[in-house]
Amino acid sequence: MVAITGTLIVQILVFLALVFFIKKVLWGPVTQTIDERRQKISEGLAAAERGRLELDEAVKEAESRLSKAQEEARELLATAQRQANETLDKARSDARAEGDRIVAAAREEVDQAVASAKEELRREVGELAVTGAERILKREIDAKAHNDIIDDLVAEIR
């Protein structure tokens, strides 16, 4: 009932065969799969870490570019403002100078007109005086002889 029999030999052979079969078909492939997965996971983690670092770098780069662009925009705006102001100032001063010039020319013209009117008036007053004197004296006055007197009169009128 309880004995060691020839079955022992058979079972040793079956066991050994099964061990080699399991080692080749189950143990080997499964451990290999586990190793592959382990490697894949560590590679994946490394890649994720690398990606994170690259992202940080990219964000930093983007921020620096953005601030640079803002700086440039600000400078550009300031320059434009300054130029506009300069242009405006120049236009203003040009306009003022032109106006001054025109006023001066007009004033000169007026002065000339006044002067010529005065000259005309003087001449006519002189003639009137001579004519008046002639009428008073009933004779012709030698205009040349009394030119100096007339001139004095004219000067007084002036």
Binding site: T5, G6, V10, V14, F21
Partner: peptide, 28 residues
């Protein structure tokens, strides 16, 4: 006797082989 290598318990060999076969099938 307690040790008899001339005797073979066929039933246990058959069940043992069936179980080994099932394990092998599971592995495959």
């Amino acid at each position: 006797g307690l040790v008899d290598f001339g005797a073979f318990t066929i039933d246990l060999i058959i069940v043992g082989l069936i179980c080994a076969g099932l394990v092998a099938l599971l592995a495959l």
